[in-house]
Simulated scan of single mutants.
Amino acid sequence: MRVIRSAKFTADNAWGAMNIANMNGITTKLHWTDKPYKWHINEGEEVFVVLNGMVEMHFREADAEKSVMLQAGDIFYASEGAEHVAKPLGEARVLVIETDGSV
């Protein structure tokens, strides 16, 4: 048992993470960032939960780039094969649940 105070978590570099759990090959990580990630496709599905800050999530759907602004409490679900990139506006903390070894 442990309690994680996500609002106090920081990392030495953008997208630095604290591993919270690995349950049957599915990881849960707390990330801190202040810079965009990179366009990528995960190995499997991904759940992306904004805990604080704001993140503009860009994704490709039907050969078109789209985006949605995510605020604290918002959840983004990326299905298997969905290409996407997260771009925070300032500092953000996000909880990411995905297959172990995903990009």
Rank of each mutant, 00 (worst) to 15 (best):
H58V: 07
A7Q: 13
A11P: 03
E61N: 13
N19L: 13
V68F: 03
M69K: 12
N52D: 15
F48V: 03
H84W: 02
T99G: 08
K29M: 09
E98S: 07
P88Q: 09
I26D: 00
N22E: 14
H84I: 04
F76W: 09
A64F: 10
V47D: 01
Y37F: 15
S67L: 08
V68T: 13
E98P: 08
T10P: 05
M57Q: 03
L70V: 03
D100R: 10
V47K: 03
N13R: 15
Y77K: 02
V49F: 03
A11Y: 01
E83C: 05
E91A: 13
N52T: 10
V55I: 14
I4L: 08
K66A: 09
D63Q: 13
G81M: 09
S67N: 13
T28N: 08
M23C: 14
T99H: 08
V103F: 12
T99E: 11
E56I: 09
L70F: 05
N24G: 15
T27A: 06
D74E: 12
K29A: 09
V49W: 01
A14Q: 04
G44Q: 04
G25H: 09
I4C: 05
D34R: 07
S102L: 04
N24M: 11
T33W: 01
R2S: 15
S102V: 05
V47P: 00
D100I: 07
K66Y: 06
L51W: 01
A82N: 05
V3A: 11
I41A: 04
M57V: 08
G53P: 05
D74M: 05
V94R: 01
V49I: 15
F76Y: 07
H58A: 12
D12G: 15
N52F: 06
R5E: 14
G90V: 10
L89Q: 15
G73Y: 06
D12A: 13
